[in-house]
Design a protein around this nucleic acid. Structure first.
Lengths: 341, 341
DNA sequence: TTGAAAGCGCTAACAC
DNA sequence: GTGTTAGCGCTTTCAA
């Protein structure tokens, strides 16, 4: 059987309330008493029991992590890394993460159980999540934060990547390399990040005085995976217009673009340069390796946890929008093969 | 504020113990009384509080999921899918999953907190995990089960794939297609699954009366990723021996083999056929698509949870070894391009 | 600075 | 069949 606070109190020769004070670093306990208690704790290998504590404090010590099931089983560990970031940061604050996946259509029946049971002190929602869940959280006044998503009409706390900056970095990079005929391929335009990447492509190119032709922008794909990138690129190439570089809305689409070009024996980057966005695994394993925009996935998860902790401790109010910085990672798909040696 | 059992009792005009009986489907409650209680529960949207219940029953309602951090952030969502399987199955039994990642070297300091706090009723360990953790679980008599791993010298409950069957299916398939010169590439031989795949390759080929030459078996790679597959295949090809098919220990290595062959303009499968194992995403996205052995990842996770639930309910003892069936998925890397139409 | 005691929401033993 | 009550392990007043 595990040691309880009583055992510790008895062993240390103090009252249980004193033990509690020591454990929670509260009140003023005499140095000497504290030492006695600490020693007893160590000897008995005492760890306060979560549920007993929670019963009093009304805190579960858990955060919920809600994720669209499709996202999670994706080939690329984009959301997995975000989750990992939350888990590690949560651990440092003595929180656990309860992960659950949901489908897009939420009925009252499939509101995550940890919400119904109030088994979490805060919630992280990653990727596109149903409006209903957010409404529920709002109504029940549970602190929450979105990652890589937001509802334009609402002011929820959210963590976003600097999509505009990322696209600007990409464009600057390509222009510096002498490219003039830039094309853009995108998909899944319901996602605000995708919208932003596309709109920035147009506006920044305009700002730079470079020509933008609608013919060189293909954002009609429903999804934003490799297949979509392949399809969009194929359409672009079949138009037989001058294109020297393709800016893809993400790495998966860029890989599709790579394939479409290879199928047509188009040399990369000599004939067409290609860029991605996200810096996921496939950008390194692709051949040629992919120039892309690095998105700090783990850090985003960690930042979400810190925000929740801050809100719970009253150090921060909700409704903040945190924009994570990005950086350009130049690789072979724009620079060409790095000469050996 | 959330409704408590008291509120329900008052609303239904019964004692709290009666409500408890109804909620837990215990004892004999009159139909009529039950109805009253159920109605009150619904009206108040009552959900029993986990921590209060746990305090009495000594059950947390949680399972721990321990995973090597490296595994989880891998490009392929192999373990992610296993986790997903546990989560969904756990949900159906009203359990939560607490996931934590660990590094290989476990000091007393980094025993997962949910173990120290006894915040889980059982533990699932996926992939290669440190011996120390398993010892700890054993010593503390926590039900646990391994997935895709085991310690040969111990008799822990574990869920494995039918590695031998998988390799046999692959070999049968290749022999049927007329292949005679089979080669094998493997890596990460510390992993029992990898060992089994390699040893079965040899023994089954022998059994089939096909020639096996050590020169055609390359298992010296430390890891079992794409790069390792590339390296092993390259070594094999440079030997200039007759090879008509390469059996890779997993899909990642098979993809590496695919690349090595492509670099040398070797046509697949006309000149060399290639097979993988696991049936992860990349086996479908690879070109040509990869013939492989399907491993039921989600089902393995689900089976692990069911086992824990059975152990907890005394319906099953520990120390079982569950072998999950596999099946061959034949694709282009052995069959060639499927003619359109 | 420390101890005694109430009580968080629930289950379970026991009385009726 | 149903109600009363003790008590799980902890935090938190309140007194001393």
């Amino acid at each position: 059987m595990n040691a309880t606070i009583k055992d510790v109190a008895k062993k240390a020769g103090v009252a249980i309330s004193t033990v509690s004070l020591v454990v929670n670093h509260k009140g003023h306990v005499a140095k000497e008493t504290e030492l006695k208690v600490l020693r007893a704790i160590k000897e008995l290998n005492y760890h306060p029991q979560r549920s007993a504590r929670g019963l009093v404090t009304k805190q579960s010590g858990n955060f919920g992590f809600i994720l669209n099931g499709n996202h999670f089983s994706q080939a690329e560990p984009f959301y997995t890394k975000i989750f990992l970031g939350t888990e590690i940061q949560a651990r440092s604050f003595d929180y656990y993460i309860l992960l659950t996946t949901i489908t897009q259509n939420v009925t009252p029946k499939n509101i995550p159980r940890f919400l119904l049971e109030r088994n979490v002190d805060g919630v992280i929602l990653a990727g596109s999540v149903p409006h209903k869940i957010v409404d529920y959280l709002h109504k029940n006044q549970l602190p929450f934060i979105l990652i890589d998503y937001y509802f334009p009409e609402r002011h929820d706390s959210t963590i976003l990547t600097d999509n505009a900056m990322g696209i600007r970095l990409v464009i600057d990079h390509l222009l510096e390399l002498g490219h003039r005929d830039l094309a853009f391929i995108g998909g899944d335009m319901g996602h605000p990040s995708m919208q932003k990447r596309c709109s920035t492509f147009k506006s920044y190119l305009q700002q730079k005085g470079a020509p933008i032709e609608d013919a060189k922008i293909d954002c009609i794909e429903e999804h934003s995976g490799t297949e979509s990138g392949f399809a969009a690129t194929t359409r672009l190439l079949e138009k037989n217009i001058s294109i020297s570089a393709i800016v893809a809305a993400n790495d998966a689409m860029a890989v599709g673009a790579l394939r479409a070009c290879r199928d047509r024996k188009i040399r990369i980057p000599e004939e067409i340069a290609i860029t991605g966005f996200d810096d996921v695994e496939s950008s390194i394993t692709a051949r040629p390796t992919l120039t892309t925009v690095h998105v700090p996935k783990e850090e985003m998860g960690a930042a979400a946890v810190r925000h929740l902790v801050d809100v719970i401790n009253g150090r921060q109010s909700e409704g903040v929008r945190i924009i994570m910085p990005v950086k350009l990672v130049a690789r072979e798909s724009t620079l060409g093969a790095i000469p050996p040696g």
